[in-house]
Structures are given as structure tokens and as C-alpha cells.
């Protein structure tokens, strides 16, 4: 039993650390980046809006796995500059996740902005609030509140998507499960991996439910 712990479960838990590390890095950077993209899409400067829209379309319209492969293996192959584009696998994977998820969060926030009634802007205006006061005090808090359930969904998807690290050979949870399965000819490690993912997504779900209740405004 102690043996199983040290040879199977412990490595998987270490792999799970990688999973969590990627998750937190990706969330912490892609949410604000997604928000900036939303601002760019809504920008009066047509060039910004246009570039941001193209970016979002590409990132959402192609597989994350393909994007990861390009960043990890494709870029270093570009003749001439490729050698400068070779970065640590894990760092490259983080970059890929951030760039991809920022596009999804941008869409979510854009939806949140669109959902705000024009009466809110009008009420703010007749009360003498400036544009920036209206944005900070009226629009953004409501936008984030509307976006919260979708952000929760996307975060849970992100946890599961971390398994894509497997494809770019960064050792994480699934990698260690796979190793144990092949070595021991047992599928039990797969189920243990499933259980660990499940625990992470359940904790995340509970956290977001708490946030939603906390900001219910009732």
C-alpha cells in the first residue's frame, strides 16, 4: 500500500501541482488580458477593434492543441529566428494557454457588456457621472457579475484542458497516470487521475457558486 502510494499516487499528485500551476498562471493572466481585448474590440480606434477581432476569431477558431504544438515545436523550427523562439516547454505551454483563453474571456466580457441596459448609461448621465465614473462604478461591476457564470464554466474547462500538457511532453497529472498504467498493466491510475481532476473541478465549482451568491445583489 505504502509502495503504491509512493510509486503511483505521489507522482500523480506532483503532476497535479503542475496542472494547478498552469491553471493559476493561465487564469491570472488571461482574465485581465481578455478584458483588455474586450476594450480593444470596443475601441473607437478602428485598427484596434479590427486587430482584436481577428485575433479572437483565430484563437477561438483553431484547436488549442494545434496552437500549443505551434508554440512549443513549430516556432523553434522557423529558419533563422527559430533558435530565439525556443523557450522552456512549460513556459511555452503557459503562453499558449494564456493567448487562447484570453480570447475566450474577451468574448465572455463582451457579452457581459452587451447585456447592460442602455438605461444604466442614461441614468448615470443624468446624474452627472462622467464617462470614466460610469464605466468604473456602473458598467464594469455589472459586466463582471453577468460574466461570472461563464467565467466559472471556462475555468472548469481550463482545468481539464491542462491535460493537453501531455501532448507537448510536460510531465503533469495525466503523464504520471499513463506511466503507471503502462508499467503496472492496471487501469486504476486512470481512475485515480479522474478522481483528482474531479476534486479540483468540484472545489472550483464550489468557489464560483460562493462568488455568485456573494454578488447576487438581493
Amino acid at each position: 500500500m505504502a509502495d503504491y502510494w509512493s510509486s503511483v499516487i505521489l507522482p500523480m499528485l506532483e503532476g497535479a501541482q503542475m496542472t494547478l500551476l498552469l491553471f493559476f498562471i493561465a487564469i491570472i493572466v488571461s482574465v485581465p488580458l481578455g478584458f483588455l481585448l474586450t476594450l480593444a474590440v470596443n475601441s473607437k480606434i478602428k485598427l484596434f477593434s479590427w486587430l482584436a477581432t481577428i485575433y479572437i476569431t483565430i484563437m477561438r477558431g483553431t484547436p488549442l492543441l494545434l496552437q500549443l504544438l505551434i508554440i512549443c515545436f513549430g516556432l523553434p523550427m522557423i529558419p533563422g529566428i527559430g533558435e530565439y523562439l525556443t523557450i522552456d516547454r512549460f513556459a511555452a505551454a503557459c503562453l499558449g494557454f494564456i493567448l487562447n483563453y484570453a480570447a475566450y474571456f474577451a468574448e465572455i466580457f463582451r457579452g457581459g457588456l452587451l447585456s447592460i441596459d442602455k438605461g444604466q448609461y442614461e441614468a448615470a448621465k443624468v446624474l452627472g457621472l462622467t464617462k470614466s465614473q460610469t464605466t468604473r462604478k456602473i458598467i464594469l461591476p455589472q459586466m463582471f457579475r453577468v460574466a461570472l457564470p461563464s467565467v466559472a464554466n471556462e475555468s472548469i474547462t481550463l482545468i481539464k484542458d491542462t491535460a493537453l500538457l501531455y501532448a507537448v511532453a510536460v510531465p503533469e497529472l495525466l503523464h504520471f497516470a499513463e506511466t503507471a498504467v503502462n508499467r503496472d498493466f492496471s487501469i486504476v491510475p486512470y481512475f485515480i487521475a479522474g478522481a483528482i481532476y474531479l476534486i479540483m473541478t468540484i472545489i472550483l465549482t464550489i468557489f464560483f457558486k460562493w462568488l455568485e451568491r456573494r454578488f447576487k445583489y438581493e
Binding site: E122, A123, G128, Q133, Y217
Partner: peptide, 28 residues
């Protein structure tokens, strides 16, 4: 600024309490 307006749909700020709905504009 010499005028105030009341709308058919109220247009209260849903994320603020009654007190904060009243106090936001004068504070700003």
C-alpha cells in the same frame, strides 16, 4: 445638471444598495 430625470423603467443601479444608489452621484 439643473435637471433630474425619472425613467419609466426606474433604471436603478442593480449592483448597489438603495443607499448607495442615492449616494453614488453626489459622492462622485
Amino acid at each position: 445638471a439643473k435637471m433630474g430625470m425619472v425613467f419609466q423603467q426606474f433604471n436603478l443601479f442593480p449592483h448597489l444598495t438603495v443607499k448607495d444608489n442615492l449616494e453614488l452621484a453626489p459622492k462622485m
